[in-house]
Nucleic acid binder design. Structure first.
Length: 274
DNA sequence: ATGGTTGAGCGTCAA
């Protein structure tokens, strides 16, 4: 009798790689562990003319889109499945600073709009009157929130990236001690959750209770990141409400923090049963 | 309050 084969879930991963050229040799380890169909990178730190296209296509990602600049920022989307460009979004805060890419994935069941964000870190002082970088971060957040809110027909979308905000109490090692630390201040966490509530589901917390500690980043500035365990969950995968039922699994690849010459962020992956 | 470390690319700046 004919029985439809159960389709393998679509896996979408995100990683702040903190220099693509330096850490290209680590990508096979990520692929072995997560088997992603789509991999979104942030902080590639490579201008487009120097992007290692041959290196990523050799890993099986035939469909690649990237936007980089010299020294800082930079995002890329590497995919095993075809996609079309999605170029409706504005130049956030009018800076041309390579913090966002979007594509329309040719996914089972219909196209999926995929957004890859690298939100400004925001500097050290959480006060926009003395720290312009914090103002930029808040402006970016507000602009993105408004832009998505205006897209009243948004459906079948996935939003990933280094959002540089740990929104929940247990997304940081000490809620009380981080309330005045950039990434966990109330204006940031409330802003991020307001954006999320306007149509998105947290694809990782769907599987992990809110009262359980969960991190995706550990600073380089600790002697022993694992024993001190002063982490924050800065990297996220959100899906629109209509895809919430397709969420099948999540993985935060904590082992990656111990790889040779590791990034300070680890990959985060979500499976969608489409 | 400060410092701790890493990357880009050669000054420091950004994180």
């Amino acid at each position: 009798m004919a029985r439809a084969a159960r389709r393998r879930p679509l896996r979408i991963a995100t990683w702040n790689i903190n220099s693509l050229r330096l850490r290209l040799p680590l990508l096979p380890k990520l692929i072995e562990a997560l088997q992603p169909d789509v991999l979104c990178l942030q902080e590639t730190k490579v201008p487009d003319e120097l992007f290692p296209l041959d290196g990523v296509t050799a890993l099986g990602f035939e469909h690649v889109r990237f936007r980089g600049m010299k020294g800082y920022n930079g995002v890329a989307i590497l995919s095993r499945i075809p996609f079309a460009h999605h170029d409706l979004a504005p130049d956030w805060c009018g800076r041309g600073d390579c913090r966002h890419l979007a594509v329309e994935l040719d996914a089972p069941g219909g196209p999926i709009e995929l957004h890859n964000f690298y939100i400004p870190a925001g500097g050290d002082v959480p006060d926009r009157t003395v720290n312009e970088k914090f103002g930029h971060k808040l402006d970016f957040l507000a602009e993105a929130t408004q832009w998505f809110a205006a897209r009243t027909t948004l459906s079948r979308a996935v939003l990933v990236g280094d959002l540089n905000i740990a929104p929940l109490e247990h997304d940081v090692w000490s809620h009380k001690q981080l309330l005045d630390v950039v990434s966990h201040t109330p204006v940031e966490t409330e802003g991020l959750l307001a954006w999320q509530r306007a149509g998105w589901v947290d694809g990782v917390r769907r599987f992990v209770p809110d009262d359980e500690k969960l991190y995706s980043w550990w600073s380089y500035r600790n002697r022993d990141w694992r024993s001190s365990d002063r982490g924050r969950r800065l990297d996220h995968v959100w899906v629109t409400d209509d895809l919430g039922g397709a969420l099948a699994n999540q993985t935060i690849l904590k082992d990656a923090r111990d790889w040779t010459q590791a990034s300070d962020h680890v990959p985060v992956c979500v499976e969608l049963a489409l």
